[in-house]
């Protein structure tokens, strides 16, 4: 009897883990999310919470960015455009038409998705650096439009945006961002672990071979761009309310570079690598601000060294550490 009971307990335990696994969480992932999610409880310093919110935001961007660059192997060098589209959509709806910011964020999400679909159409025949340039040019063109269409965006003087919730504490805003991170993570993991994800990887490795195997690259490219850009729009919409003022500079290339660096350093094709990269790098970079230019020089050096010596990024590193630990434990278990 006791044996049977233990068996049942095991099954329930397993089904819970399975459920989490289905959502894309490993036990380590759950722990990390718990540590992150409970931050407002054990951290009282507002400035640090703010840094964490920003890090999560950049992490979420990096994850959504990785969904394109790490899977179908196209670097969306115009990713800041979707950040901008999301931000300006909710800002214009709220400040000009009085639309509820939550609906505004939804609209930002949808509009960025539509724009992403459009970008997917534009890049459908292109590959490699040409596709990247296409996305980049789109962002640059939108930058110029946002600057010059003053009637809509208020141009370079900037547009004040009211916060999502009026509160002096960051707890509420932290959990909103945390929820967005969870949504982004779960959506991306679900999709990438499904058949669609396998098709993405196949296209990313060799488009011709994938096509020969009966995968329609165009269709999957469109799906990929739409999802990745829509999520970018959602995060961008959050940014508008979080930052309090937006200017057309959101569209500028350096924003894409920042996201791209985080996602590459985090590890391509892992999804969670970008989040980890942001959570580690952003606070560190913030605390090095006193070093002025040297901080950026170190940052550039780090990017170069990472690309030369560790192109698999943090996620690759952690996977190796995990493998080593596993082997050691396995050996000791045998003894």
């Amino acid at each position: 009897m006791p044996e049977k009971q233990e068996g049942r307990a095991n099954t329930t335990k397993r089904s819970v883990t399975d459920a989490f696994k289905g959502l894309g969480f490993s036990p380590a992932g759950i722990m990390a999310m718990l540590i992150l999610g409970l931050m407002p409880v054990y951290i009282t310093d507002n400035a640090f919470l703010r840094v964490m919110i920003s890090s999560m935001m950049y992490g979420a961007f990096a994850m959504a960015f990785d969904f394109t660059s790490g899977f179908i192997n196209i670097t969306n060098f115009g990713y800041s455009a979707f950040w901008g589209i999301g931000a300006y959509t909710t800002a214009i709806l709220m400040m000009h038409y009085g639309v509820n910011p939550w609906l505004g964020m939804l609209a930002g999400f949808l509009l960025a998705g539509v724009a992403g679909f459009g970008l997917g159409l534009l890049t459908i025949r292109l590959g490699g650096i040409f596709a990247s340039c296409m996305t980049w040019f789109l962002a640059l063109a939108l930058f110029a439009v946002a600057t010059n269409w003053v009637g809509l965006t208020e141009g370079s003087k900037g547009m004040s945006v009211d916060p999502l919730i009026a509160s002096d504490s960051y707890t509420g805003i932290f959990y909103i961002m945390f929820a967005i991170v969870l949504i982004v993570y779960v959506v991306l993991m679900r999709v990438s672990n499904s058949n669609i994800g396998i098709a993405f990887r196949a296209i990313g490795q060799d488009t011709d071979a994938a096509q020969a195997a009966g995968i329609d690259p165009a269709r999957y490219k469109l799906i990929n761009f739409t999802i990745s850009c829509a999520l970018g729009g959602l995060i961008g919409a959050f940014y508008a309310h979080f930052s309090g003022i937006i200017i057309p500079k959101i569209f500028q290339t350096s924003n894409t570079v920042e996201i791209m660096a985080l996602s590459y350093i985090g590890g391509r094709g892992s999804i969670w690598g970008g989040l980890l990269g942001a959570m580690l790098l952003l606070p560190v970079m913030d605390y090095m601000k006193g070093m002025m230019e040297w901080r950026l020089i170190l940052y550039g050096l780090f990017m170069i060294l990472a690309m030369i010596f560790y192109p698999a990024g943090l996620s690759g590193l952690i996977n190796i550490v995990r493998g080593h630990i596993g082997r050691i434990l396995h050996l000791s278990g045998k003894d």
């Binding site: 490993s26 036990p27 380590a28 722990m31 990390a32 550490v321 630990i325 434990l329």
Partner: peptide, 9 residues
């Protein structure tokens, strides 16, 4: 192994 890496994290 998993719990170890959880602890590590």
């Amino acid at each position: 192994t998993k719990s170890f890496s959880v602890g590590f994290a």
